[in-house]
Amino acid sequence: MSTPVLVDANSPVPEPQNPSDLNVEQDFGDTRVIHLGGTLRAKAAVRSSDAGGVDEMSVAAADAAMKDLSADFQNWMGDEVNRLIAAYENFRDSDPGKRDIGPLFRAAHDIRGQADVFGYPIAAEIAGSLSKLLDKIEPDYLPIQLIAHHVDSVKAIYRNNIRDYANPVATQIIFNLRRAIERVIDARQKAIQEELRLKRAM
């Protein structure tokens, strides 16, 4: 039987405590250091015997949930590849000077980040190269043909269901595209430096 709690009917109801009130602040002149009061820790930390504080059961449960989800990954990858193709075609067909790099970059960047999870690591790597190219070169100086090679390669890898590095053609494609991008970036940087040098000389 639980012990009854006596409550004074006239006593004020305590105000809920603002989490930031629990913080401890130190003033170092122009810098203030704020030690968090540990409200989140108090809310969610529980004792565990797992080494390193990693809840192995939770991680295993999440991995199992991902495995259930993976039946959809091939279709999702197809959607992402189609988005990349559409963004590329839109970029290619826009008037030079009015080209918006955003949708193409985000489509490539998303494949770079997700294709590995979807089971297409080579496509992720090629999309990563394309992201790098789009990130380093101004839209008006981007070589359309090289972008097309990347998009076609990602498309081919998806359609031929190439999922590992054992495929020699795929690894050769990665190597060639990477080398082409390095050349383009290098050439553009040299051109920028030359422009700066000429401006200073004038």
């Binding site: 820790r41 969610a44 930390a45 529980v46 004792r47 565990s48 797992d50 080494a51 504080g53 939770s58």
Partner: peptide, 10 residues
Amino acid sequence: MFRVDCSRLR
């Protein structure tokens, strides 16, 4: 050692 009970977090 502590772990996080994610069921308590939003």
